[in-house]
Amino acid sequence: MNKLITSARSRAARALTSAAQTLAPAPAGPPRRHVPSDRVNPDTVAPVAPAEGVDGFEILDKVVALPISTWRYQWEPAGVRHLGPMSQDWKAAFDLGDTDRSISNVDGHGVALVSIQALHRLIIELRDETTALRAEVTELREPR
């Protein structure tokens, strides 16, 4: 029975420590948190590309429409400000993660990267269109 109680206390202490680390401000210095993201579990990995169901431009439109706020956490000094979306708006826009009370770093990174890829595709399309239009203008300006 003592082992069971000790084990339960140990699990509770680890849970409280984990919760405190999640809610407490990060220690000074560079962050040392890593977000696991590898192909060890291939049945849960699905590539994201427009041909496979995720449209980067749709994600980008959601990012553009996402309300952005500034705030500070209760434990921070009055002069500290953070910038970003509220988790409830994030959940409503993207339906990522398992709660509307926080935003997972990995989801934020994913949305940002998909949006960057969409912007890159748009830049390439606009560059190609501009090149074609310039060639057309040059041709029209040439004496006949």
Score class of each variant (00 low, 15 high):
K3H: 12
S7A: 15
S7C: 15
S10T: 04
S10L: 06
A12L: 12
A12M: 11
A15W: 02
S18C: 13
S18G: 12
S18P: 02
T22G: 13
T22Y: 12
L23K: 11
A24V: 03
A24Q: 09
A28H: 12
A28G: 15
P30N: 06
R33W: 05
V35L: 08
V35T: 05
P36W: 15
S37P: 01
D43C: 06
D43I: 07
D43T: 11
T44H: 11
T44F: 13
T44Q: 13
A49M: 15
A49P: 02
P50I: 08
V54F: 01
D55M: 08
D55L: 09
D55A: 14
I59Q: 00
I59L: 10
L60V: 06
L60M: 14
K62W: 08
A65R: 14
L66W: 01
I68T: 07
I68C: 09
I68R: 09
I68W: 10
I68D: 04
S69V: 07
Y73P: 03
Q74G: 08
E76V: 07
V80W: 12
V80K: 12
P85D: 06
M86V: 07
Q88Y: 15
D89F: 01
D89A: 10
D89P: 01
W90G: 02
F94R: 01
L96K: 03
G97T: 02
T99Q: 06
S102V: 02
S102E: 04
I103L: 03
I103W: 00
I103S: 00
S104C: 09
V106C: 10
D107M: 07
D107F: 01
D107R: 02
G110Q: 04
V111Y: 00
L113H: 05
V114D: 00
S115H: 04
S115G: 15
I116Y: 12
I116H: 08
A118P: 01
A118E: 02
A118M: 08
H120I: 04
R121L: 06
L122F: 09
I123R: 11
I124S: 10
E125P: 02
R127C: 12
R127T: 14
D128C: 05
T131I: 04
A132H: 07
L133F: 11
A135S: 07
A135M: 05
E139V: 00
L140Y: 01
R141H: 05
E142R: 00
P143H: 06
P143F: 03
R144M: 02
R144S: 03
